[in-house]
Structure formats: structure tokens, C-alpha cells
Amino acid sequence: MASTWRTSTGTTVPAEESSGDIRSRRRADRARRLRAGLPGLALVAPALFFYAVFVLRPLAATVQYSFYEWDGIGPSTWVGVDNYVRLFTDPELIGPIVNAFQLILYFSIIPVIFGVISAAIIRKFGSSKLALASRTVLFLPQVIPLVAAGIMWTWIMATNGVLNQGLALVGLDGVTRAWLGDFDTALPAVGVIGAWVNVGLCMLLMLAGMTKIDPALYEAARLDGAGAIREFVSVTLPAVRQELGVAIIITVISALRSFDIIFISTQGGPGNSTLVPGLEIYYLAFFSREIGQASALAVALTALVLIVVLPLNRLTRTESTS
């Protein structure tokens, strides 16, 4: 990339200069660039230092640990890829991954759809007080710490919580249950908490995307006789394609690496029905004290997130340039 910049610069080399001059000139160029880069480097150095110490180093250490059998305290034993082999052969370690993929529905698909629709509606209200109020209400879950959200929802979904009280009030006593303690409903119930949290983010991203749409497009569409739905499908949706991509990527990642909400509300129970990889890594590392196995699962989870997200990333990129 840098070479194309160099050829396109205005500082072309005069034809009469000798090759030795060119070399020395290049060297001088390089030195100058380095000097010019130094202040920049100095500016990013503090951040870079923390990034290296708190992100890169742990990342490298995790990869290293994954090849050992280690209890976190005593001496360790090199086991090669054994920990990775167990990931693919132990059904107990595959269940959580399946659960994580199911959570994508709740953490990603539902909030994105709901976010687009609510943003489109809020945009219609323009800058009225109603728009401001609904924006605030929908975004609030993003501001609340996930732990608080988890605690709040466990109360709501408890046997005598607001949800069941509401259902009983309208005569639906038959469906009331301990939502987080039932094998059939625990995972969807946890998903609902995630959806509630992620809707605000999706809506805000969509709103940001929609504000940059030229109002003339809507006017033209209306002149052509388009209704509200036609307008949404033909004008709004294509314009926010890129924001849509970002929202999907962020929420899919949050589904795959989910931990906080589940740790607070169900701790993986009942009977492993809400166990996800993040929680399993935590249990392996801090309860079973199998640091190596936990690290291997963590590396695999990172790889899995990349495998799922990179194609999504490419998809939105090509769509936005086409």
C-alpha cells in the first residue's frame, strides 16, 4: 500500500540524478518519515503499552497455556494438542457451543429487527418529545450494568415475579412457571434478557444511519406514490445497510461470548441447559483448575467468533460498495 502512495506522490525524481543520489535520497526520505512518525508513536505509546500488557500478552499466554496441563499454581506438563482434541471429542464441551449459537437468535436477530423497526418509527416523529422519550427508554438497557440487568430480570421472571403476576392477571395462570428454572424455557428466558439489552444499541446505530439519508429521497419516493412500507424497504433499509452489518457483528459476538447475564441469572443451570462457552471457560479455570483446558476452549472460542464474524464483515463491505 505504501508503495502506491510513493509512486503517486508529487516528489518525482528528476531524470538527471544518478542512482547513488536516488539511494541517498531514499535513505533521507526514510529517516524523515521515521522522525515524523516518532511524535505519533510517542502519542500512542501509553495506550500501546497497556494494550500490549493487558491484551496482547494475555492472548499470547492463553495460547501458550492451552498446550499445557496446569492447575494454575504448581508445575505444568506439556501435553501438545491434547486439550484441543478433547474439545472435539467430549460432548460436554460441545453442548455449550450449541447453546451459544441458539442465543444468536435472541442476542442478534431479534434485536436487529426490532431496532430497525423502532428506529424507523422514531425517525418519523422527528425531534418531538415522544421521539426523545422512546429513544431514551430503548437505550437505557445499554447504560445499565449487565449484572444489574441480570438481577432485575431474575426478579421479574421469578415464580412470584411481575411477569407471572401479569400473566395470572389476564387469566394465563396455566403458563406461569419459574422461567429461569425450567429446562424448556431457561435458554429463551436468558435470551430475552440479552435481546432487551441489545435492542437499544441496534436502535441507536440505525437511527444514526437514518439521519444521514437525504430527505429528498423520501420526497421523491412519496411523489412516486410509495407508502410507508415501500419507503422503508426501498429507501431506509438500503441506506442503513452498513449500520445493519455493524449491529449484526456486534450482537453476534455478544451472543457467542455471553457470560455476565447467564452467570447472574442461571449460572448455566438448570442441568447445563444454559451453559455457554464463556461460563464453561470460567468453571474449567476456577473450579476444576484446568487452566490448560480452559485456555484451549478460550482460544477455540476466539477462533469461532472470528470464523463467524469475518464472513459477515465481508458481506456488509461488498454490499456497501456495490
Binding site: 500500500m1 505504501a2 502512495w5 510513493r6 503517486s8 506522490t9 508529487g10 516528489t11 526514510r30 524523515r32 518519515r33 521515521l34 515524523a36 512518525g37 516518532l38 505519533g40 508513536l41 500512542v44 500501546l48 494494550y51 500490549a52 496482547l56
Partner: peptide, 19 residues
């Protein structure tokens, strides 16, 4: 200017190699 872009690219290289 092109030169500033040039410098920035070079700076980026330095930073990334240091990182």
C-alpha cells in the same frame, strides 16, 4: 497534502512494527 499522507503511512508502519 500527499506528503502528510505519506508520513502517516510511514508512521503507521513504524508503530505497527514496534507493536
Amino acid at each position: 497534502s500527499q506528503t502528510s499522507v505519506n508520513h502517516r503511512a510511514a508512521g503507521r508502519r513504524v508503530v505497527s512494527s514496534v507493536a
